[in-house]
Design a protein around this nucleic acid. Structure first.
Length: 211
DNA sequence: AGCACGATTAACT
DNA sequence: GTTAATCGTGCTC
């Protein structure tokens, strides 16, 4: 583990989810598979914060599924949805406050052959440009729920990367909230890299809709 | 116990 | 632009 591979400390996550989401852009998501690194730079993320946020899974209070969000920051909250997809989140805020950041897209940088083995049937720019695409590409599922993202000896963690300047980051409403009432439906808690082809597909639709 | 729906994706018209 | 796929979760009765 050389100096270029420094995991983000737990204090990084012990802040408001919105700040964590913004600052995760440019950081490196690392998955260890059979001793090999499969990794990518985070290019899109969304914040889900508190029981009052009606888009957050904590809106019904603490349940068996979302309990991890109420725990210590810096852990992975991985959940199953739409009957077939896994989503990866990083728990934010100090223990007791339910909040998490959904990782929506990454730009592959390491272990590309392993990603290609799972996603190679499509063009490379569509390998990890969506929340369920990247978990499939990095083989992240139920077994990774609760993983300590601050543990560099674990199987899933996030390292410090090169932060993106504000000029390269745009903020929009979160994606996929159909029945969520305002103001939560439109609150700009999604952060994505500008002109980034590695961002999730629906970004283009969102940007069009905002004009 | 039953039911509506989901922080999505890929395929199809 | 539209829709099927597919099942765990949590609400309602």
């Amino acid at each position: 583990m050389n100096s270029e591979h420094i995991v983000l400390p737990r204090s990084f996550y012990a802040r408001h989810a919105v700040e964590v989401a913004r600052d995760l852009l440019g950081m490196r998501l690392v998955r260890i598979e059979a001793g090999r690194r499969v990794a990518g730079i985070i290019t899109e993320a969304e914040a889900y914060e508190g029981e009052e946020d009606l888009a957050c899974h904590a809106r019904f209070g603490r349940t068996p599924r979302n309990g991890i969000m109420y725990g210590a920051p810096g852990f992975a909250y991985v959940y199953f949805t739409y009957g077939m997809h896994w989503m990866l989140n990083a728990v934010a805020e100090p223990e007791g406050v339910p909040a998490a950041v959904l990782i929506r897209a990454i730009q592959p940088t390491e272990g590309v052959d392993l990603i290609a083995a799972r996603r190679g049937m499509r063009p490379p720019d569509q390998w990890t440009d969506g929340p369920a695409k990247l978990t499939f590409a990095l083989n992240i599922a139920r077994a990774q729920n609760g993983a300590d993202l601050c543990d560099p000896s674990g199987e899933l963690f996030i390292e410090r990367g090169e932060p993106f300047p504000d000029a390269q980051v745009i903020q929009t409403a979160r994606i996929g909230l159909f029945h969520t009432p305002e103001p939560w439906k439109s609150i700009p808690w999604r952060f994505v890299i500008v002109q980034e082809k590695k961002a999730s597909r629906k970004e283009a639709e969102t940007q069009r809709n905002l004009k």
